[in-house]
Amino acid sequence: MNNQRTITLIQPNNRDSEPPLANRYMLSQLSIPVLSKNILQEKIFRLTLSSAYISQRAKPGNFVHIRVGSTGNPLLRRPFSIHSVDISKSRFDILFRVVGKGTELLSQANPGEVLDILGPIGNSFILPPKSKEVMLVAGGMGIAPLWFLFTHMLAKGFDPSRITFLFGAKNKRELLYLEKFKKSKVKLLVTTDDGSLGSKGLVTEAFLKDIIGGNRDHQNLAVYSCGPEMMLARMSDLAKEYGFSCQVSLETNMACGVGACWGCVVKLSDGTYQRVCADGPVFDAQKINFSKIA
């Protein structure tokens, strides 16, 4: 394997003028050792992986495409958002829930094991001007890329008191990082399906209540969201209705992960399809036609 051969797939002419879909850079196939494995909750795992290459290049929203087994079953790689990065220690994390064969196998990877990984892949979230009020809306494992975005923003000097983080999960055990949120001074609103912590119900409805009740200037909001498809469909509807900017990170079945097969497409409002792997995974929520994929 040729570990460090890279080219730029799409070279943006000007990052500032053409930011949203411009971040397809430096894709490489790497052999990456697992440094540690944390079981955060039942079936929720965090793997820390050792790669200077990816940690130096990853931006919030990027993902990696991991070969989870060496046999034919499961056959295809699995995509995972980059969850956090530590450049000084040359490592990055992925966070996932065991939902099927692929994640089951990956959850069995132990420190020292070497994984075959393509990355970093995809575009990234566009950071807002610091004058904007930032709202991050995560559902369940949607915390994975938004945590990276959140910590990246703090590192970039965003004022945590101007960031609202809405986090919904099945129950309080799956509301990860509550201590870390508390320390960060961000405004945190949590919801759970069973009411075991925060308000009972959907995070999207807590979000709606906040933006219509809280004297918010919708034009001044920069909203970022990731979670189940139904949730993102709702966020897309709200973004269209209230006119706030909203970037969502999508998840789909994926085959190649490099833009070649056109298997992972999402339908846009104009009727065209775009690839989640190569044109996304971050999209403008207002431009997606979720009715066609829900």
């Binding site: 034919g72 079953n73 056959l75 085959a255 056109w262 992972c264 065209t272």
Partner: peptide, 30 residues
């Protein structure tokens, strides 16, 4: 990849699904 006379958007998603030791695709000549 297949080239056709006019551009083709292809089929509605989902377009791929993994099956035991294989995969199904229905891209639709995008």
């Amino acid at each position: 990849k297949s080239v056709t006379l006019l551009p083709r958007e292809g089929n509605p998603p989902p377009r791929t699904v993994e099956t035991p030791s294989g995969m199904l695709n229905a891209i639709g000549l995008t």
